[in-house]
Nucleic acid binder design. Sequence first.
DNA 1: CTAAAATCCGGACGACCGTACCACTTCCAG
DNA 2: CTGGAAGTGGTACGGTCGTCCGGATTTTAG
Lengths: 192, 192
Amino acid sequence: MNPHHEPPARPRTAPAQARSRHRRATLLNAAVDLLTQGGFAAVTHRAVAHHARLPLAATTYYFTSRHQLLAEAFAQLVETELATTRAWLTRHGPAALIDQVAAADHTRQLGLWELYVHAGRDPVLQHIARRWSDGCLRILADTLHLPQTDPRLRLLYTTVSALWLEHLVEQRPLDEARALLTLALQNALPPT
Amino acid sequence: MNPHHEPPARPRTAPAQARSRHRRATLLNAAVDLLTQGGFAAVTHRAVAHHARLPLAATTYYFTSRHQLLAEAFAQLVETELATTRAWLTRHGPAALIDQVAAADHTRQLGLWELYVHAGRDPVLQHIARRWSDGCLRILADTLHLPQTDPRLRLLYTTVSALWLEHLVEQRPLDEARALLTLALQNALPPT
DNA sequence: CTAAAATCCGGACGACCGTACCACTTCCAG
DNA sequence: CTGGAAGTGGTACGGTCGTCCGGATTTTAG
């Protein structure tokens, strides 16, 4: 008499069917796009679904909540950002870091920092934020051939990220930031 | 036949009556409180009105939009923060800066940075963000008896703010941040 | 005192939002 | 082939939001 219907069986792990996996990835990419364009608040279920040309219900089928969707989008954004930074740094050298900031997509970086600050209120996001810091630090260490534990390197990273955020938000003249970056590099790397 | 009703006559400048001015200030304080407690998203018209024990319509009467309300709250928050920092710095000296961060209200500072990042998308907020930076820089200059234009000072400020944000978001051990701060101070102030 | 201006506020409107429902189709193990 | 599991999607629910309306009340100018 009681058919005992189980709930509609959301995929607990990665979807089993290939088409499903593709759809999930499409949604995630749409979320990342929206995050970079309109920031944090732009990532709604409806916006993501529409941007991915998928029905609204797909978003709740593949992601248990908006929170999880945001977290995964943040993580993916961090990974691509790390890869981009590494590529730029090995190609142009550390002194050109500021120019990467100037060259890259303004709103994309704002979205990143927006989520970074938000991570201060959310343990899950905090974990991703640390991954970002650690990744940047490692890239710097590899580029400058210094150990990751070197406090001068640590200091340099901190300074660079602050210059980055400052330039992003306040949009002061670029020369000032460039001068500060070279000064920071001198401090970190005493004349060999 | 046509009474030609003018719109309900919102106060274009500061309210004329004393009670009104007091009410407006109450609303603004409530907005600041909410901003520090729940961050950005917690500042809604209804929440502000309820927290100030005033009717909902008061918020739209004294502030033409939520955007203006947020901007004024941010400005006020920045002013109090600057005053607090100045007091702490003249009392304890620059090496204790990190401890102020650790001591002060965690969520209040998160709210500040949240708005700071948001200022990257909003010219009005950007203006306030710059005021914050300039204020901090000036305080540092006064404390260390250096000219504001000294690039070492500028670099020190940048580093300190990054350490601040980093500690706020990632919540790493305090000792690491303290060590980096002293190192930064050494860089900025070569042995006299 | 009186009229105009300023202030006040309960309630409503329309727009979004996250999420859940559930009938439907497609897939795959047996 | 078949039955249950996986996937699909149109739609609806309950909620919060910013803002506005318009009459009631208070203050102030003349």
